[in-house]
Design a protein around this nucleic acid. Structure first.
Length: 804
RNA sequence: GCCGGUGUGGCGGAAUAGGCAGACGCAAGGGACUUAAAAUCCCUCGCAGGCAACUGCGUACCGGUUCAAGUCCGGUCACCGGCACCA
């Protein structure tokens, strides 16, 4: 048989699949449906990365297997193309982002096709297409209509380098997600989506879906729900209340001071009452200059200023309590003020030590001279709570008391903040809102969507962080849709994450111009059965899109509350040096090079074989060759093909076992062991020296989802009918997975001494007596007392002996 | 600091439910074929000792449970990821 010409063969089948639309999903099918989704790529100028290939190859295998199992499979792809890298490239080169995006999409498409992924190419979407972002804007307006959009002037995360406001999700760790510059806090007018209103639903929804446990955990931590109580402290000589949130209301008797965030509004309101206002101003100034990073440095010492002449009253005992401002209290969480219980909170303890404030123990069990005691114990110095030892009970009792007395009430807090939703940039969806001097914020009417991005020459943001759109008078000036008077358009655009928050719905009906998707089609296809993507999206895209989808469910636009039934994540591919691949390190592997040199099948096999799918693994140039050898050996099977319409006796159980193993491994992301099992089977076949037609048929069907080109070619060359991808997945017989004979180990005191072949159905007695007949075992047990004998079926015999 | 995860040959990694540690692949060494190289095929391949049959040790470290531990329990260390003054 000739050498395998992968270039010609791969091109041939890719053209056939393309022409016949082999992998197009059917809309009105009676077959069971399977919707497998991979995260659509951002079409960057760098082209595809081997990481993309690994991310898509997992569900590619599942999708191909499902089709062979008789499912109607929707496995779509598209492009998430709005965003800063493209815009920055446009600023640098002067090429319009539209042009840049189109070029990059073209390039990505050809690269994806070269790998032979079985995407449904008739459903490709592009988030920057106006027929697409029309519906992104439509959803935004629906949210606006339902009170989920609001505008607020607050301190926000701001990237001085990108000149944009960022959400918390986009500035994790105090650094800009795009350029990694340090984030500063800036007071700005910001559009927010009220995602906190969905915090509980997002948390609850996690119980009904099949996500990897660490994904669930990360989302739970990000949402960060805590339960506790709000307490209103009176301010001495005023009618004002200082409202705080605490998770431990039961420690209220241990409060010796209060702390407010430096930005707390009460400070301005009562500046006249505060005797040392200049010192306060000085401290606030200092804080505002700190970056988010500096401010969250744990190691640094506690700082603060006592407010002179401005004190609170403990509602339980009427005691006067000093109030401080300190930047260890954040305006963005709770009420921006706390009651400090230094005996039982380490931060409060450090502050109290530094400022010489009393420390009152209310929970027994630690040494509060040395550090705060945060464990459980008996309540002391706490009036009606004294003697209680159960934390839950004392919290409950205090909360009830506060409620009765009208001083406070139970409450819930979340770490998650509302989603800062506008970006002062050009290459994004325009926010469809008009600012009218009479009517305020007015929605652009639905029938005027899409609100198109205007053509501009200059994409640079303004120096004061203003959107480039603000410079286009013809865009900005408009009439108010409500009163018809002169008005101005919002000039900010939506963040990168807008388009990807609902894209999986659009695949279902990508060309619909009446709705984001047809309801019957949504009903048939949703939810996504299996979604695979990166861990880096767990607290961003994955939470944002669940939020949007739950909102669409609440307004009756989609048929189910949770969009994704199952979510998995692949591990990174590291550079050959074991470091994360990056251009600057020069360790990036280009999938094109691999396809050129070894072929698409080799690339596909290798990314799945290289290690545990869920873990990071370094690329190895030489290991790729192992997959190349394997595929050549698979091709070589044509040379030793014999007739036969059932499995041969000596390979029968091996084939049944392989079908079983490969079938189950694909379902559990164990692609590496599935391929290993096929390699083992290949070795067995070569050891025998021949393969018959029945065996070959099963063999290449099992491998087809992994290496579709070469198996399809073998199918044709061997003279089987039709196309391999349109046949069916092999089945196995559990009874035939067992061999007639098994080799077991024979142990003395748990150490292997010998091996023995016995009939697989041997009983315990037969196995043990056969073991004892072995010379080596007879010798080892001679002169010994046999304490115990056991047989583990099909595994081993263990004889426990001790000296007589 | 808190929460998760991981730790197995020279390397990537296997190991059902507590049951033969190292499947499969890579690299390495030896051999065959070849004028030669590549490719291919065959053999060896956890460590230490021994001519050998064999013996001892071995899944990060220390201890425990068990006839039997990579797997279970207690403790320690290291690395990776997430959050990070969240009251």
């Amino acid at each position: 048989m000739s050498q395998y010409d992968f270039r010609a063969v791969e091109k041939k089948w890719q053209d056939i699949w393309d022409e016949k639309q082999t992998f197009a999903a059917e809309d009105n099918s009676s077959k069971p449906k399977f919707y497998s989704l991979v995260e659509f790529p951002y079409p960057s100028g760098a082209g595809m990365h081997v990481g993309h290939i690994k991310a898509y190859s997992g569900l590619e295998v599942v999708s191909r297997k499902r089709r062979l199992e008789g499912y109607n499979v929707l496995f779509p792809i598209g492009f998430d193309a709005f965003g800063l890298p493209t815009e920055n490239y446009a600023i640098k080169t002067g090429i319009h982002p539209r042009q840049v995006t189109d070029n990059n999409i073209k390039r990505f498409t050809s690269q994806l096709k070269r790998v032979g992924f079985s995407f449904d190419w008739s459903r490709v979407i592009d988030t920057t297409d106006e027929d697409y972002y029309k519906w992104t804007q439509w959803i935004f307006l629906k949210m606006f209509e339902n009170g989920l959009v609001f505008r607020d002037k607050t301190l926000v995360n701001y990237c001085p380098s990108c000149k944009v406001v960022l959400s918390n999700e986009d500035s994790q760790g105090g650094h800009c997600d795009i350029c990694h510059s340090e984030i500063v806090q800036k007071s700005k007018d910001v559009w927010y989506l009220r995602i906190t209103q969905y915090a509980d639903k997002l948390l609850e929804g996690l119980k009904e879906v099949d996500f990897l446990p660490n994904i669930v955990l990360q989302q739970e931590n990000w949402i960060g729900k805590s339960t506790g109580a709000f307490v209103n402290f009176s301010i001495k000589d005023t009618d004002e209340k200082l409202r705080i949130y605490t998770t431990r209301p039961d420690t209220l008797f241990g409060v010796t001071f209060m702390v407010m965030a430096p930005e707390h509004p009460l400070i301005d309101k009562y500046s006249a009452k505060i005797a040392n206002m200049s010192a306060v101003e000085e401290y606030r100034d200092l804080c505002s200059k700190k970056s988010a990073f500096e401010r969250t440095q744990l190691v640094k010492e506690k700082t603060g200023v006592k407010l002179e002449g401005f004190t609170a009253v403990n509602p339980l005992n009427g005691k006067e309590i000093p109030i401080y401002i300190s930047d260890y209290v954040m305006m963005g969480y709770g009420t921006g003020a706390i009651m400090a219980v230094p005996a039982h909170d380490q931060r409060d303890w450090e502050f109290a030590k530094k400022f010489g404030i009393d420390i009152i123990e209310v929970i027994r069990g630690g040494d509060i001279e040395k550090e705060a005691y945060i464990g459980d114990g008996e309540m002391v110095n706490s009036g009606f709570l004294n003697g209680l030892t159960n934390k839950k009970e004392s919290i409950e009792k205090m909360a009830e008391y506060l409620q009765q007395q009208g001083i406070g009430e139970k409450g819930v807090q979340y770490k998650m903040n509302d989603w800062a939703f506008n970006r002062q940039r050009y290459w994004g969806e325009p926010i469809p809102i008009v600012h009218c001097p009479h009517c305020g914020m007015v929605a652009v009417p639905y029938d005027e969507l899409p609100l198109r991005l205007p053509e501009v020459k200059d994409f640079k943001p303004g120096t004061d962080g203003e959107s480039p759109l603000a410079k286009i008078d013809s865009f900005v000036n408009c009439k108010c849709p409500k009163c018809g008077g002169d008005a101005k358009r919002e000039t900010d655009t939506m963040p990168q994450w807008a388009g990807s928050s609902w894209y999986f719905l659009r695949y279902i009906d990508p060309h619909n111009d009446k709705a984001l998707a047809d309801k019957d089609k949504l009903k048939y296809w949703m939810p996504v059965d299996w979604y695979n993507g990166g861990m880096e999206h767990v607290t961003r895209h994955l939470i944002y899109s669940r939020f949007w989808h739950r909102f669409l469910y609440d307004i009756g636009e989609v048929p189910c509350d949770e969009p994704y039934a199952k979510r998995t994540a692949q591990g990174l591919i590291l550079g050959p040096d074991g470091d994360k691949m990056s251009k600057s390190k020069g360790n990036v592997v280009d999938p094109n090079d691999v396809v050129d040199e070894f072929g698409a099948d080799v690339l596909r096999a290798y990314v799945l074989f290289m290690g545990d799918y869920e873990k990071a693994a370094p690329w190895s140039e030489t290991a790729v060759k192992g997959c190349k050898r394997f595929i050549d050996r698979v091709w070589g099977l044509l040379d030793i093909l014999k007739d036969g319409d059932e499995y041969s006796k000596d390979l029968e159980s091996k084939f049944h076992k392989a079908v079983k193993k490969v079938s189950s491994d694909i379902e559990t992301l164990k692609y590496n062991t599935a391929i290993a099992a096929m390699m083992t089977l290949t070795n067995d076949i070569y050891a025998k020296g021949e393969i018959n037609r029945a065996e070959l048929k099963t063999f290449i069907t099992l491998l087809n989802p992994f290496i579709p080109h070469v198996t399809e070619e073998i199918w044709e060359k061997a003279g089987f009918e039709g196309m391999l991808n349109q046949t069916s997945w092999p089945t196995y017989d559990e009874a035939k997975c067992v061999d007639n004979e098994v080799e077991i180990a024979v142990q003395i005191n748990g150490k292997v001494k010998d091996r023995l072949v016995i009939p697989a159905d041997s009983g315990s007695d037969e196995a043990i007596s056969a073991a004892k007949e072995l010379d080596s075992i007879a010798k080892a047990t001679q002169g010994m007392q046999i304490v115990k004998e056991l047989y583990v079926k099909g595994r081993l015999v263990n004889i426990v002996v001790k000296p007589l």
